[in-house]
C-alpha cells in the first residue's frame, strides 16, 4: 500500500540546514497497523507529513497504492489527500464553529457528494465511533476523547486507503487513550491500513508492527505481539 525508498528531508534554519530524514526505506502492506516510534526530534512527524502529502520530500520515492507521489500541484495533492488519506491529529483540528456532524461531513463536501448523502454517511460514522447522540454538539461541548473520536470519524468518512494518526493520544489521559486506541484497532480489524506516530511505547505496543526512528534513520523495524484492548 505504501512504499518508501531513500527518503530525504532537510529544513533550512537560517544559514545551516537541519537534516531531518536521512534515507528512509520501508513498505507497508494493506491492512497493517504500524506504529512509527521515536523520541521528539527523531523525524517521525516529518515522515508522517510527507506520507500525508502535507509536506514534500527533498529526495526519494513515495508510492501510495502504486501511484507515484511526486511534483504534485496543490490541486492534485488536495484531491489525493481527499481520496486516499484520512488524518487524525494530536490537537484534533476540528473546526470549532461546526458541530460534530458537520465536521465529519466536511471531507465529503470536498468529494462533491450531495448534502443528503453527506449527512447520512456522517451519521453512520458518528454511530461507528459511538457519538450519534452528540452529532449536534460543537467541539467545545465535547471531551478530549470525544473530540478525537469525532476526528477519527471524520478521517474515516471519506473512506481513505490509509489512515494517518499523528500522536492521536498525545493530548489524552491514559483511559481515554485506550478508548481511542481500541477504536483504531477496531477500524484496523475491518481492514484499514493505519499508521500511528507516537513516542509512547505503550501505544506502539497496541499496533502490529513498530518502526523505530532515531535521528532521521530507521534503527528498528519489527513485528510485535499486539496488545488487544
Amino acid at each position: 500500500m505504501i512504499q518508501i525508498s531513500n527518503l530525504h528531508k532537510s529544513y533550512k534554519m537560517g544559514s545551516n540546514s537541519l537534516h531531518v530524514l536521512k534515507g528512509i526505506n520501508f513498505k507497508i502492506d494493506e491492512g497493517e497497523l504500524v506504529a512509527i516510534m521515536g523520541s521528539s526530534g527523531s523525524g517521525k512527524s516529518t515522515l508522517l507529513n510527507i506520507l500525508g502529502m502535507l509536506d514534500i520530500a527533498d529526495e526519494g520515492n513515495y508510492l501510495l497504492d502504486n501511484v507515484l507521489i511526486k511534483d504534485l500541484t496543490e490541486t492534485i495533492a488536495a484531491n489525493y489527500r481527499n481520496r486516499f488519506l484520512g488524518f487524525v491529529f494530536q490537537s484534533f483540528n476540528l473546526i470549532n464553529y461546526k458541530n460534530a456532524l458537520e465536521n465529519v461531513a466536511l471531507p465529503l463536501y470536498y468529494q462533491g457528494l450531495r448534502r443528503k448523502t453527506r449527512q447520512q454517511k456522517a451519521l453512520e460514522y458518528l454511530k461507528k465511533v459511538g457519538l450519534l447522540d452528540w452529532a449536534k454538539h460543537l467541539p467545545s461541548e465535547l471531551s478530549g476523547g470525544q473530540k478525537q473520536r469525532v476526528a477519527i470519524a471524520r478521517a474515516m468518512a471519506s473512506e481513505p486507503k490509509v489512515l494517518l494518526a499523528d500522536e492521536p493520544t498525545g493530548a489524552l489521559d491514559s483511559n481515554t487513550s485506550r478508548e481511542v486506541m481500541s477504536l483504531i484497532q477496531k477500524i484496523n480489524d475491518e481492514g484499514k491500513t493505519i499508521l500511528v506516530v507516537t513516542h509512547e511505547i505503550d501505544i506502539a505496543k497496541m499496533c502490529k508492527r513498530i518502526i523505530t526512528l532515531k535521528d532521521g534513520v530507521i534503527i528498528e523495524d519489527k513485528k510485535t505481539d499486539q496488545i488487544l484492548l
Binding site: 481527499n82 481520496r83 488524518f87 473546526i95
Partner: peptide
C-alpha cells in the same frame, strides 16, 4: 488560517 489548513488537509483545493 488554521481552519483553512484543516480544510486543505481534508481535501480542499486552493481554488475552492
Amino acid at each position: 488560517t488554521k481552519e483553512l489548513g484543516i480544510r486543505k488537509a481534508l481535501g480542499a483545493n486552493p481554488i475552492s
